[in-house]
Design a protein around this nucleic acid. Structure first.
Lengths: 150, 150
DNA sequence: AGTTCATCCTTCAAATTTGAACAACACCGG
DNA sequence: CCGGTGTTGTTCAAATTTGAAGGATGAACT
């Protein structure tokens, strides 16, 4: 291994800022959602993704990738959502192994009710804290960061 | 409640970018640390904080706040680190209730060995992906985001 | 000194997450 | 059509996280 390039002050500030912001924002959203909707953040994300998908359904694997979580973790969460009647499982016609998770009307309704509070929290925690030019950088730069790690 | 201000495309891109980046970066670091050092990210952070602290020790509550985790969660992690001999508990002289977590020499050594790989991963995942001006914005803007959520 | 209220850390049970192991199946080249 | 290889979703046990509860103490005030 070649010599370690340690982080200088500016880099350290960026790293610390990124870490703290992501933890605190996550924590805040988790709290807001649980409080006002009884949903966890992962669960909310599932509903959002399904609501935007054709026929309001997605394959388990697609969901797991989109949520950046493990397959078993998704199985668990879908199970929870199914219990509450927000999601239903449907087997895939073209692939016997495949399972579609499909948003139910109840699930859609739950999302509709949870969304305003969630968006408000996202604004308060992140979006409205950023200046327009900062917003652009976050979208562009962090978008690139996420993309490179796929 | 007044009308909901939904996110426009630019805002949504920033939010999505932020979310995906934080999840993927976290995941990558977790993997890198576990693989090359047998430490979890929270555990590594504990070691870093202690190493930088006077006498290499911090109160449990200070640590919990700094790590943005629950008190019980910290109790658990310190227990794990204690098992491995990386940390030792010391009762606080001025406050019977207080407990110091103190880094041992073994813990310091473990940190020394883990640090280069960790820093390299941080660079590869985030720091070296950002342009200098982007780095500045991330430090400044996300620093503000984290700060406002305290 | 007595009260009251906040703080400190741990314990406990419940919820969640993870990765490995599996079983069933798709897909591709021979 | 077969064998080899990769995929799909689940199950399982183990690790981790969380929040509520509790025991003990500090701190401020009367």
């Amino acid at each position: 291994m070649t010599q370690t390039r340690w982080l200088d002050e500016r880099e350290k500030a960026a790293w610390r800022g990124f870490l703290e912001a992501s933890h605190r924002v996550e924590r805040r959203l988790e709290q807001q959602l649980k409080e006002q909707s009884g949903l966890s953040h992962p669960q909310y994300e599932v509903l959002v993704l399904l609501a935007d998908a054709p026929r309001r359904e997605l394959r388990m694997t697609e969901l797991a990738h989109a949520l950046i979580t493990s397959k078993s973790g998704l199985t668990y969460q879908i199970g929870q959502l199914e219990k509450r009647g927000y999601v239903r499982r449907r087997s895939c016609p073209t692939d016997v192994r495949g399972i579609f998770a499909q948003l139910t009307d109840e699930g859609y309704e739950a999302l509709r009710q949870a969304a305003p509070g969630h968006v408000a929290a996202v604004r308060e925690a992140l979006i409205d804290v950023l200046e327009p030019d900062e917003l652009a950088v976050v979208a562009e730069a962090l978008g690139r960061v996420g993309h490179r790690l796929r």
